[in-house]
């Protein structure tokens, strides 16, 4: 008798060659780091800081939850990832990892992260994390992404939720300040991703993903990017105007807001394709710097404030 197990179609099973590094790539570490950073800002908004270990576990759970969403996204999108240059080297399209393992990994980590956050902090935070994972995987990845050019406008809510989850983990409730941080990331997301979509328009065309530049054209996309940055710039000032950030933050937000609107305006006025691609590259790069800058100042300010309380 043989101990070889055959698949239904009579073929031998594929034995994966994946190493832990491939599983770590499934978690989208760069996205994860931004999620941790924005969740930390939400957590530090709490009037009374949680125990350092509880804060660490909360951030770890949120990071793992975000990573699990990334793994489930890569499982579902393996077919279009294979067609796009930017994503073709991901573990599944590269053939290093089978989709079933990625699915199992994503589901296990999702459950583990939600329950760990619930046990360590509270069940509101856990429910919000579960909703974030659900929204990213089911609403964005499975439904919106391949259906409408508004995919990232609505889907951006998933990426914007971590500050609310972080604040809820520390306090057991949701407050206006954490919702303001949510709104900043939510409005920041479309111009950031549309700039990328302009740079990678051929990739998205090949994969059949209806991003705004492919569906509505470059002129409409440039106008939308400009309009979003015109909303984003004043919204970025809200933490200072509402009194939970200092004038230093206000200055950084004002300078950053002027610069991002300026880049969007240049992009809008670009005369030829090469000029516009350059401006789109600047918009993509600066948008990361803008969001990182705002949250960095906020995190430093809140950390200093909490240290003064101790």
């Amino acid at each position: 008798m043989s101990d070889v197990s055959y698949l239904d179609n009579g073929e031998l099973p594929r034995i994966p060659v994946a190493e832990p590094a491939d599983y770590i790539r499934l978690l989208k570490p760069r996205v994860m780091s931004l999620v941790v950073f924005t969740a930390l800002a939400g957590l530090l908004l709490a009037p009374v800081p949680p125990h350092p270990l509880i804060a660490f576990v909360a951030l770890l759970s949120i990071a793992i939850g975000a990573g699990a969403s990334g793994a489930l996204n890569m499982w579902y999108d393996a077919d279009i990832d294979a067609k796009m240059e930017r994503t073709s080297k991901r573990p599944i399209p590269a053939g290093r990892l089978d989709p079933e393992s990625a699915l199992a990994f994503g589901v296990v980590l999702s459950i583990l992260s939600v329950f760990t956050l619930g046990f360590a902090t509270n069940w509101l935070a856990a429910a919000l994390l579960a909703f974030t994972i659900f929204f990213y995987v089911v609403i964005y990845t499975m439904w919106l992404k391949r259906w409408t050019p508004l995919n990232i406008v609505i889907g951006g809510a998933a990426g914007a939720l971590p500050p609310i989850v972080g604040y809820a983990a520390a306090t057991g409730e949701i407050n206006l300040a954490s919702v303001v941080l949510f709104a900043i990331i939510f409005i920041w997301t479309p111009p950031h991703f549309w700039a990328l979509a302009i740079l990678k328009i051929e990739d998205y065309d090949r994969a059949g993903v209806p991003m705004l530049p492919n569906v509505a054209g470059l002129a409409r996309t440039r106008l939308e990017i400009l309009l979003y940055t015109l909303v984003l710039a004043p919204l970025g000032l809200a933490p200072w105007l509402l009194g939970f950030a200092s004038p230093v933050y206000g200055f950084v937000a004002m300078a950053g807001g002027v610069m991002i609107v300026n880049i969007a305006a240049r992009m809008f006025r670009a005369r030829d394709a090469a000029d516009m691609r350059r401006a789109a590259g600047r918009m993509f790069g600066f948008s990361i710097l803008y969001l990182f800058g705002l949250f960095l100042v906020l995190v430093i300010e809140r950390a200093l404030h909490l240290l003064a309380l101790i």
């Binding site: 101990d3 070889v4 034995i15 060659v17 994946a18």
Partner: peptide, 12 residues
């Protein structure tokens, strides 16, 4: 008569 893993599969 079982599946013989390659070196890469064993390492993984």
């Amino acid at each position: 008569d079982g599946v013989m893993l390659t070196h890469e599969q064993q390492r993984g």
